[in-house]
Design a protein around this nucleic acid. Structure first.
Length: 598
RNA sequence: GGACCAUUAGCUCAGCUGGAUAGAGCGCUGCCCUCCGAAGGCAGAGGUCAGAGGUUCGAAUCCUCUAUGGUCCGCCA
């Protein structure tokens, strides 16, 4: 069910030279090749399902391969026989210190410490580019997110969508995709008329008039200054005039102001879009017509009458003939109207045109990030893109679930009507963009998220933001102290250190964790799940803190060894490599690494 | 009536697209800190992976059904 095309979802796990698991997997497959050549194994075996992964239980070794089990059946051999033969050959490689057959036919490998020690050098050589992947293969991907209506400031729900979409875009970029970040401005529908009328009321108010906000207008305070700005622009020209006189102007004016507001909200969160795409710009250009003609030419547009929705019966429901898109041909449950009975487009029509345009722009992959309340829209959108691209361009739609806000452990609700509206600004102003972003990424996008204003600022192990930042800050502290002690700690010097000195279990544990980074990036990118990065960083920080804490008792594990600059440099190299990977990971999440904690 | 998502330790959640004895934090139990790196550390208890079938060497993971919770379901965006 992967959203990725076969070219990138394929089994070529050998691509990233920095991925130690990919390296060993290649060693395994080439070894198997030689076994085919010398007749140990039959010809024509498929090596694709073979994996080289870290075992769950570290006691099983550094890496495990399922090769023997996967090949047993097609080769017509016993798993153990294959495993034994493979093990004998693998141990002749300098990197493999032992290969044991275990369980049903697993081959557990232990790697020489030098393999892990070399990881630190690689990290120092590559810097934050370590782990940059090639799975993306340079494919063009469009990530659309936020896309909030331009009728007010962004609220908490948008914040999660913004953070998720942005981190996903960065992750895909890091994994080697050519990413475009895009925001679709819904400025073509009735809601911008409502906005215009609401602004007009504030405009009247700015002229000293008494106004009331009827149902169906936006009473929010944020429009007061827009009304005043309108007054500053047009004076009293629009006063006491009919709607036909001012509506269009005010709509444009208000929409621009709202987009300014939204842009500044996004900026406060550190989100920068490549493209703002206006729904309005679709009208009058023939694009909607072209998109629908494309569907019509494929026989997917017809006039018809839909069944009434079951379960819930709208009182005024009556059968009407509409122009429908045969989305059921592409996996939807019912066909969807593209034109209202009065001849106007439905909301769906410009959406189709917008995605048609994305396909035309040559993207290889589309991703839409929606709020969970748009879940009902997923199938029809996928159907549309499938039809428009003849199934060639996959569309993955990621839904972000609700954010439940807490303060002092007490939930508080937000309601547009009551004016208790928690905005993106409220959140960012209180806890800062870094904490906001990290916390919002500590949950899968499709799981509900609890956000407690107090807990996210706590400085303890419970708080992953703090815990990860603290690890980075500790490294910075080590580097400062090393400098005071006159030890050279530039990355080039550290990379040249004698890393074979890093032979303690705790050090090797941390090195192994660092080695997982490239592989994690691939997985996270393939599944479109940036939260994996956040969890990895938490684990990495945990291993680092663990090593640090051991230094309390075992002084030989401390990063700075007095009077022994060579050993110090090796250990600092490990610390610095950890900081580099943390910085790279935080970079994907859009969080600044801390140099010190106060 | 239907669709989508969720259901894993007392609580909040991971679980690397099918691997071995299912993990983390909190909470709980026990131990450890005069100082040198404790805004802590070490150890332990705690599970029918919602339930029932199925697929296969092997399932928390894939398929079917059921239960519970959330979101949504014609001309609103």
């Amino acid at each position: 069910m992967s959203a990725l095309p076969a070219v990138i979802d394929g089994r070529d796990k050998r691509k990233n030279p920095m991925n130690i698991f990919a390296q060993i997997r290649e060693l395994i497959t080439t070894t198997l090749d030689t076994m085919v050549q010398d007749g140990t194994l039959p010809d024509g075996l498929n090596f694709d399902p073979i994996t080289a992964e870290p075992p769950r239980d570290a006691a099983h070794g550094d890496m495990a391969t399922n090769a023997a089990m996967v090949l047993a059946k097609p080769a017509g051999m016993k798993p153990r026989d294959i495993a034994d033969a493979l093990a004998a050959k693998l141990t002749s490689d300098a990197r493999i210190t032992s290969a044991e057959v275990a369980g049903p036919g697993f081959l557990n490998l232990r790697l020489a410490p030098s393999v892990w020690q070399a990881v630190a050098k690689t990290v120092l050589d590559e810097g934050t580019a370590f782990g940059r992947g090639t799975v993306g293969n340079g494919l063009k991907v469009n990530v659309e997110y936020v896309s909030a209506n331009p009728t007010g400031p962004l609220h908490v729900g948008h914040t999660r969508g913004a953070v998720f979409g942005d981190a996903l875009a960065s992750l895909l970029d890091f994994a080697g995709f050519d990413v475009t970040r895009e925001y679709y401005i819904n400025d073509g529908g009735a809601q911008v008329d409502v906005l215009a009328r609401s602004v007009y009321l504030r405009y009247q108010e700015a002229h000293g008039q008494e106004v009331a906000f009827p149902d169906g207008t936006y009473p929010g305070d944020y429009l007061i200054e827009v009304g005043e700005a309108l007054k500053a622009k047009v004076g009293d020209d629009y006063l006491d005039k009919g709607e036909q006189y001012w509506l269009e102007d005010v709509r444009t004016f208000a929409t621009e102001k709202m987009m300014d507001l939204i842009r500044s909200d996004l900026k406060a969160l550190g989100v920068e879009m490549d493209v703002f795409y206006s729904e309005k710009s679709l009208y009058g250009t023939g694009l909607i017509e072209a998109a629908l003609k494309d569907l019509k030419d494929k026989g997917l547009i017809y006039e018809g009458v839909l069944e009434p929705p079951k379960g819930k019966k709208p009182e005024d429901w009556e059968p009407r003939e509409q122009t429908l898109f045969r989305s059921t041909d592409h996996g939807d449950d019912v066909d969807r109207p593209v034109m209202k009975s009065d001849g106007g487009w439905t909301y769906f029509a410009p959406d189709i045109a917008y995605h048609y345009d994305k396909v035309q722009r040559g993207f290889d992959l589309l991703i839409d990030v929606f709020g969970a309340d748009h879940g009902g829209y997923v199938k029809r959108m996928k159907a549309a893109v499938s039809a428009l691209s003849d199934g060639k361009v996959p569309l993955d739609i990621k839904l972000t679930q609700l954010v439940k806000l807490f303060k002092n452990g007490e939930p508080f609700k937000m309601s547009k009507r009551a004016g208790t509206f928690v905005t993106l600004r409220d959140v960012v102003d209180q806890v800062g963009p870094d904490v906001t972003r990290f916390v919002m990424l500590t949950r899968k996008n499709d799981a509900m998220l609890d956000f407690d204003f107090d807990k996210v600022l706590e400085q303890s192990r419970e708080n992953p933001v703090f815990y990860v930042q603290y690890a980075h800050a500790r490294v910075a502290s080590v580097l400062r102290k090393a400098a005071d002690a006159g030890i050279a700690t530039d990355d080039a010097t550290l990379a040249a250190a004698d890393l074979s000195l890093l032979d303690h279990d705790s050090e090797l544990l941390l090195l192994r964790k660092l080695a997982e980074w490239p592989r994690l990036v691939e997985t996270a990118a393939r599944t479109n799940e940036p939260h994996r990065v956040a969890f990895y960083l938490y684990e990495l920080a945990g291993d680092f803190h663990g090593l640090w804490n051991k230094g309390n008792e075992v002084t030989s594990l401390r990063f700075i060894q007095e009077g022994d600059p060579a050993t110090s440099q090796a250990k600092i190299a490990l610390a610095r490599a950890t900081a580099i990977v943390i910085a790279a990971g935080l970079g994907i999440l859009g969080v600044n690494p801390a140099e010190e904690m106060r």
